Simulated scan of single mutants.
Amino acid sequence: MSEGTLRSEEPADPEFDHPALLYQGLDAYLDGVGSFVRAGLEAGEPVLVAVPRPRLGPLRERLGDTAGAVDFADMAELGRNPGRILAALREFADRHTTGRSRLVGEPIWPQRSPAEVREATRHEALINLAFRRRPVSILCPYDTAGLAPRVVEDARRTHPTMLQGGKRCTSVGYTAPAQVCADCDTALPQPQRFQRLGFTAGELAAVRGWLDHRLAASGLDRGRRRDLVLAVGEATGNSVAHGGGGGELRVWSEGGAVVAEVRDSGRLGDLLAGRRRPGLASAEGGRGLWMIHQLCDLVEVRAGHDGLVLRMHMDIGPAAARS
């Protein structure tokens, strides 16, 4: 969609603000993000900046003495798995309930894999559900020189407002979050070789033992093996409880990662399931899915007519940074 499709009207939600910053070059990045952050600080708003580490130093330098009032996070660490970014943003906003919160989140950068970009796009759409009618401003920078045109096009679909060249416009390409999430449910590429195991109620301990045995020669260290077994245990438990009483586990190696996939006949009734830390005494659903997102380096979710697929990736080698 061309710049000519942008209009000057403001988004319909007067409380929630979710602009995408389209930029080229470091100076434009620092100008756009710096202006957004300074406006929040001048208004007395709490500010969180979560961007990839190479951007953190230049931003601190541009903000000067005011940088001390900002919470900074490395998005490559916090958002290694895009499925856990939203929980971190919500927790920051929930800690500051007396006024407007201001956040910068850059979930997509040129080094992201296609699978990560797709899940980050899903995350961007879900922001619009999670913060609807809340006094929160979230700026998301997009490098138009380094990202594929389709990624920038999707930014127009997931953000009600666009910022480019110092101008603020409403995106007529904005699309309902549920539709964007459905569009993200593309067919997953199938591995050439994998091991599989069907399971039903009463067999979950045996499933965990079967998986742990196969992971012993995978190259994962003991801690990461434990985390993947725990994540799969949560996924298979959900299959038994909510996915028709059972399902199928598949395991294989892919590049520098081990992948475990759980398939069942369930449905994802709540698009935000697993995107918020559940309280200890909360009856809110999504506890298992939230834990899966926290444990894994990437979680691909596919909610189709024939059931639910959770594809969980765990990197081999030095432990990937986690939030």
Rank of each mutant, 00 (worst) to 15 (best):
G246F: 05
L271M: 13
D71T: 12
A115H: 13
E284M: 02
P149K: 07
L188F: 05
V301E: 02
V309K: 12
G202I: 08
A216N: 02
T170G: 14
G202A: 03
F72S: 01
G166W: 06
V180Q: 10
L215Q: 11
A28G: 12
L89I: 08
D270I: 11
G64D: 11
T5E: 15
T175V: 13
A201P: 04
R277T: 00
R80A: 11
R134Q: 09
D264P: 00
G286S: 12
V207D: 05
L289G: 11
A320V: 06
A178Q: 15
E15I: 10
A43R: 13
R226L: 04
R80I: 10
G269V: 05
E124R: 13
G173E: 13
G288F: 04
R156A: 15
S253R: 06
C169P: 13
T161Q: 15
R90P: 03
L26N: 05
A205V: 07
P318H: 01
R225S: 00
V117Q: 14
E3T: 09
Y142E: 08
G307S: 04
L41Q: 13
G34D: 00
G57W: 11
P141F: 01
L86Y: 01
R38I: 11
G99W: 15
L230C: 00
A320T: 12
S137L: 02
L56T: 15
T97F: 08
R80C: 14
G247Y: 00
E42S: 07
T175Y: 11
G237P: 12
C181A: 04
A217L: 02
R102W: 08
A76P: 06
A182F: 12
F92R: 03
Q164K: 10
R196Q: 14
R193N: 11
V262H: 09
T200M: 06
L220C: 01
R95I: 05
R250Y: 10
G68Y: 14
P46F: 05
E203D: 04
A73Y: 10
I108P: 03
V104W: 08
V251W: 13
T121A: 10
P114C: 14
G209M: 02
R60E: 12
A130Y: 00
R112E: 11
A235Q: 13
